[in-house]
Simulated scan of single mutants.
Amino acid sequence: MINIAEHVTKTLKPTNLKVYFNTVPTGYDIQDQYITFLEINAKPALEASDQEFETERLIQVNVWSKTDYYLLVEDIKQLMESAGYERTIEYDVPKQEGDSHFNKVLRFVFFDEY
């Protein structure tokens, strides 16, 4: 079983952006672009004789940017898929008054074998 926080952080390292697990940056030093992620759920994917052999993990990656993030999103999808994640859905979160960044949500499934 992998440490999902370390695995996703390492996978996204080539973006050269700050990557935050299950939190958002605060304060005055928030970058123009950054990435947050969390594990939405984990459930058994393969069991036998009351023993789990594979876990299905649903991971949400949020891309935050003050400018167009199309190329960054494409890079993230390629990095995640190269690391064994399968994209299940993606969508833009509507920007509202007072929001400082645009937000793109990407969801991936990862099958973690024991």
Score class of each variant (00 low, 15 high):
Lys13Gln: 14
Pro14Asp: 14
Pro14Trp: 11
Thr15Ala: 05
Asn16Glu: 11
Asn16Ala: 09
Leu17Asp: 07
Lys18Ala: 09
Val19His: 05
Tyr20Arg: 02
Tyr20His: 10
Tyr20Gln: 04
Asn22Met: 03
Thr23Ile: 04
Thr23Pro: 00
Thr23Trp: 02
Val24Gly: 00
Val24Ile: 13
Pro25Ala: 10
Pro25Val: 06
Thr26Ile: 08
Gly27Phe: 04
Asp29His: 02
Ile30Ser: 02
Asp32Cys: 04
Gln33Met: 03
Gln33Ser: 13
Phe37Thr: 04
Ala42His: 06
Ala42Arg: 12
Ala42Leu: 01
Lys43Leu: 13
Glu47Pro: 00
Ala48Phe: 08
Ala48Leu: 14
Asp50Phe: 11
Asp50Arg: 13
Phe53Trp: 11
Glu54Ser: 10
Thr55Ile: 12
Arg57Leu: 12
Gln60Arg: 13
Val61Gln: 07
Val63Cys: 07
Val63His: 01
Ser65Leu: 08
Thr67Pro: 00
Asp68Arg: 09
Tyr69Phe: 05
Tyr70Ile: 10
Tyr70Asn: 11
Tyr70Glu: 10
Tyr70Arg: 14
Leu71His: 13
Leu72Tyr: 01
Leu72Met: 10
Leu72Cys: 09
Leu72Pro: 03
Val73Cys: 09
Val73Glu: 09
Val73Asp: 03
Asp75Ala: 09
Ile76His: 08
Lys77Arg: 13
Lys77Phe: 01
Gln78Thr: 14
Leu79His: 12
Glu81Leu: 02
Glu81Phe: 08
Ser82Leu: 06
Ala83Cys: 00
Ala83Val: 00
Tyr85Arg: 02
Thr88Val: 14
Tyr91Thr: 00
Pro94Gly: 06
